[in-house]
C-alpha cells in the first residue's frame, strides 16, 4: 500500500543573525492510511518543527528546510507554491494545536470558527445553510451540544475548547491529522475522553494521524508506529511492540523508560538520564546522545552512528545491545555539569 505521507531526509534550521539552530536533522518516516505514528521526545527535540514543516508553517524569516522531501498523496509539499499549499492545509491536512486556550480566536463564536474552515475550502459549493448544518453536525460529533455554537471560547472549559479545536481540524474530513500534544494541557479524565474520541473518529473516517507527545503512556494507547526523537534525529523507530516490548533499544529509549515512575511496581529508585539536551546551535559531533550515554566510546564521539535495522525496527547506534558496555567515559555530561 502506498503511504499517505512520506518524509525523506528532512533537515530544518532556524537561522538568525546571531546563530543557527539545527532543529531537525535528517528525519525520514512514512505513514500509511488509517494508521497512527507517534513522535516522542522531550522539549526541543524537534517534534513540533517537523510538524510545522509538513504544513509549511515554519516562521518565514528564520525557518528553512535545507534538504529533504515531504510527499503527501501525490504532491511534494515543500515544492508547492503558497497558493497550492493553502488549498491542502486545513483541508486535506489539518492540525490540532497543543494549547486550546490560545489556539482559538476569542472574538469569534466557535460556530463561526468551524465554518471558517469550510468556507475557505468550499469545494462542494455548499450554501450558507448547508454550512450551518455541517457545523452543527461536527459539533455533535465531538460531543458539544449544537445549541452552543453561538458561544465564545471563554465560555467553554479546557476540555470543551480542545473539542472545538478538534472540530475545526476535522470538519473538512482531512486525510492526515497532525495532533501536537493534544492533551498535555488537560486533566487525565478529560485526556482519556479526548484520546478515545480521536481514535474513534480516526477509525470512522480512515484518517492517518501523527501524534506528537512526550507521554509514553499516550503513545502506547494510540499509536501503531513510534519514532523516538532526540536532538532533531530519530534515534529509534519501530512498531508499538518493537518499542514497548522487551527487545533491544537505543540507550536514550532505555533512559526514557527508566525515568518514568512505575504505576504497578514497587517504589524503586528512578534511573534518569544524566545531563541535559545538547544545545541545538552547537550539536556534538558524532552521536548526538554521546555526552549523556553511559556506553559512550571514542567512536561514538567521532562518527555519526549508522541505522541498524531488523524487521523494520531501526536503532541509530554504533553498538548492538550485546556489544555495549558501560564505559569509563560514562556520565561525562554530569561531570562537566558539576565542574
Amino acid at each position: 500500500m502506498n503511504p499517505v505521507l512520506e518524509v525523506k531526509n528532512l533537515s530544518v534550521i532556524y537561522k538568525t543573525d546571531m546563530e543557527t539552530v539545527y532543529a531537525v536533522n535528517d528525519i525520514s518516516f512514512s505513514l500509511e492510511k488509517g494508521k497512527t505514528l507517534g513522535l516522542v521526545g522531550e522539549t526541543g527535540a524537534g517534534k513540533t518543527t517537523t510538524a510545522l514543516s509538513i504544513l509549511g508553517l515554519l516562521p518565514e524569516r528564520t525557518g528553512q528546510i535545507t534538504s529533504g522531501r515531504i510527499v503527501f498523496e501525490d504532491a511534494v509539499l515543500n515544492e508547492l507554491s503558497r497558493r497550492e499549499l493553502e488549498r491542502i492545509r486545513g483541508h486535506r491536512i489539518s492540525m490540532i494545536f497543543q494549547d486550546p486556550m490560545t489556539a482559538l480566536n476569542p472574538v469569534l463564536t466557535v460556530g463561526d470558527q468551524i465554518a471558517e474552515a469550510l468556507e475557505l475550502h468550499n469545494e462542494e459549493h455548499l450554501n450558507k445553510w448547508a454550512i450551518e448544518k455541517k457545523v452543527e453536525e461536527t459539533l455533535e460529533m465531538v460531543g458539544i451540544p449544537k445549541e452552543r455554537k453561538n458561544e465564545y471560547p471563554h465560555q467553554f472549559s479546557g476540555g470543551m475548547r480542545q473539542r472545538v479545536v478538534i472540530a475545526i481540524a476535522l470538519v473538512c474530513n482531512p486525510g492526515l491529522l497532525i495532533a501536537d500534544e493534544p492533551t498535555t494541557a488537560l486533566d487525565v479524565t478529560i485526556q482519556a475522553q479526548i484520546l478515545t474520541m480521536i481514535c474513534d473518529l480516526q477509525r470512522k473516517y480512515g484518517t492517518s494521524v501523527i501524534m506528537i507527545t512526550h507521554d509514553l503512556g499516550v503513545v502506547a494507547e494510540t499509536c501503531d508506529q513510534v519514532a523516538i526523537v532526540y536532538a532533531g534525529e530519530i534515534v529509534e523507530y519501530g512498531s508499538l511492540l518493537d518499542i514497548f516490548g522487551g527487545g533491544s533499544h537505543h540507550p536514550y529509549t532505555e533512559g526514557l523508560f527508566g525515568s518514568i515512575p512505575s504505576l504497578t511496581g514497587h517504589a524503586k529508585r528512578l534511573q534518569p538520564i544524566e545531563g541535559l539536551l545538547p544545545d541545538p546551535t552547537d550539536l556534538p559531533a558524532g552521536c548526538k546522545f554521546s555526552p549523556r550515554c553511559k556506553y559512550c566510546t571514542q567512536l561514538c564521539r567521532q562518527k555519526q552512528p549508522p541505522i541498524r535495522e531488523q524487521n523494520g525496527h531501526q536503532i541509530r547506534c554504533h553498538y548492538t545491545p550485546d556489544s555495549r558496555t558501560i564505559t569509563a567515559d560514562a556520565g561525562t555530561a554530569r561531570k562537566e555539569d558539576l565542574e
Binding site: V188, T189, A192, G217, A220, E221, L241, F244, I260
Partner: peptide, 15 residues
C-alpha cells in the same frame, strides 16, 4: 477508580 483507569499506561498491551 475512574482516575486510575484514565491514566495511559506505557506498555505494549494498552493499545
Amino acid at each position: 477508580q475512574a482516575l486510575l483507569a484514565a491514566i495511559p499506561v506505557p506498555s505494549a498491551d494498552s493499545r
